[in-house]
């Protein structure tokens, strides 16, 4: 029962954090400066999220040659092709290849 309560409370809190601004700003005019600032939320969160995903259990960013070259290759492919599947295939191939060579 306490486990269910914990899951339920986490579910409510998660929905709250996802819905807060969407629901509270629904019928309000959002001033232009804020609207322009919100443009940068997506890229900023993604930039920080990518680095955070590379943090190992020891609290350090795991970024060797394999990771760096895979990310560089994936970034270029994404820029040129704008295709998620190509980006994934090239990125992971470079990652496995460089990891196997070193």
């Amino acid at each position: 029962m306490t486990t269910f309560l914990a899951i339920f409370a986490t579910g409510i809190g998660t929905y709250f954090s996802r819905s807060l601004f969407i629901l509270s700003l629904a019928n309000r005019r959002i001033p232009d400066p804020i609207r322009r600032a919100l443009d940068h939320v997506g890229p900023s969160v993604l930039g920080a999220l990518i680095v955070t995903m590379l943090i190992g259990p020891d609290g350090r960013v795991m970024m060797g040659y394999a990771e760096a070259s895979a990310l560089a290759a994936a970034g270029l492919v994404a820029l040129r092709t704008r295709n998620h599947i190509f980006t994934l295939m090239v990125g992971m191939s470079v990652f496995w290849l460089v990891r196997a060579l070193l």
């Binding site: 993604l46 995903m53 990310l71 994936a74 970034g75 994404a78 980006t87 994934l88 992971m92």
Partner: peptide, 8 residues
Amino acid sequence: PILFLGVL
């Protein structure tokens, strides 16, 4: 992270 970089 690779896919998220692509999305970014």
